[in-house]
Design a protein around this nucleic acid. Structure first.
Lengths: 212, 212
DNA sequence: ATGGTTTTAGAATGGCCATTCTAGAACGGC
DNA sequence: GCCGTTCTAGAATGGCCATTCTAAAACCAT
């Protein structure tokens, strides 16, 4: 019943993603999304209550997709291999989702607004953060085994920050990540994870190039 | 001659830095800078032609300061030690300049506008980029010696992207970088640089955890 | 003191953009 | 054919903010 809809949320969301990826979420305007998606402004507001809600949808959409798969890789049988698999997955995902990768790598979460997010979106975001924290924590404990101290910093650096940093440059230039970079990331990641697997006590002795 | 000035560029620039660091350069408004610095709007425009020019000044100011010293460290006698010294310097600088560090680590260059920068500012920015490229290139060649291929990617990862990624978290939370993180970064940086120093041919053989 | 010059002060202007509003269109059910 | 409902279209509104403008202040030289 009622007039059939000519435009769905999907088209609007896709337009919003395109615009975000091209000019950045901060500069996204409803008018631009409308133009890109070929949807009148009124119809956009018929689906989404506000610009913030649109940005929330854009962000949650691809982050949930990425993170779910990424974290799944982490659960693999052999700890170290699982970590590397996750990093490899991230590289592949970036190659396969150039648009979303721009959003993931080139912008911070808060560029997609936050304060005025509706409660439901906020809950989704909180779940994402909690999941990530839990999985990384679990991974860190697995990596340490019963031998050592859990080094969350190192694990996060190796699995999250390092790959993001490495991939960012290529994506920024509109390139796909180079195989060389992927090799470099995997190798470095493996190194950091191996080091983190050692207990702090072991490191107390034979340490080399460190602080000060 | 003429009425003596009550406010100088320095106060305005400092206010702009504070505001940028707190709410981000994108959200900086002239009114906020005016309020923060205790300077009327008109006087701000008496010194700076536009908001863009203010942001340019903010950005160039601290980046020139940081980069000059960082690149200087790279010239140290022993290649590897010089690289580590540069990373160590970066960690120290972040500790010593919390406000500027936020700007350096939490925002991208283009958040400080670009298109409408005046020519002189653009030239300063280009010089910065050129210097950085030259020095990193020179460093990469020194690192490779006459034995191998120059791996700019690896060098940039180790010296620039990796430290930035590692320091970002702490700075984002308003913390100063932890000593643990610094140790971790130095160790990882050293590893990547050592690997990069090997020639590509050498790696062709005994490689381990790599692509795909 | 007077005039020229540099600054201060902050009000007025104009543009952009999110959001709202008004009309009317396209159904299904009756 | 008429009604209630769900959309479409895009014009009108209102707020924020960069920038401009007007008045007046504070100084110097004469």
């Amino acid at each position: 019943m009622g007039r059939p809809s000519r435009y769905g949320e999907a088209e609007i969301l896709d337009g919003a993603k395109q615009v975000s990826a091209e000019i950045g979420p901060q500069k996204l305007t409803i008018a631009k999304v409308a133009a890109r998606a070929g949807v009148p402004v009124g119809s956009i507001y018929h689906r989404y209550a506000s610009r913030d809600e649109i940005l929330a949808a854009v962000w949650l959409d691809f982050v949930e997709d990425f993170q779910r798969q990424f974290l799944a890789e982490l659960e693999g049988r052999e700890v170290l291999k699982a970590g590397l698999a996750a990093v490899r997955f991230a590289c592949g995902w970036v190659r396969g989702h150039p648009r979303e990768a721009r959003l993931l790598l080139l912008h911070r979460r808060e560029d997609f607004a936050s304060e005025r997010w509706p409660a439901s979106d906020r809950r989704r975001a909180e779940k994402l953060a909690a999941d990530a924290g839990d999985c990384l924590g679990a991974y860190a404990r697995r990596l340490a085994g019963r031998t050592g101290v859990v080094e969350r910093n190192a694990v996060r650096l190796a699995l999250v920050d390092l790959p993001m940093a490495g991939l960012r440059r290529d994506v920024e230039g509109g390139q796909r990540p180079s195989p060389d970079m992927q090799r470099l990331l995997l190798k470095t990641c493996a190194y950091v994870l191996r080091q983190a697997a050692r207990s702090r006590n072991q490191r107390r002795k034979g340490r080399s190039g460190n602080g000060s």
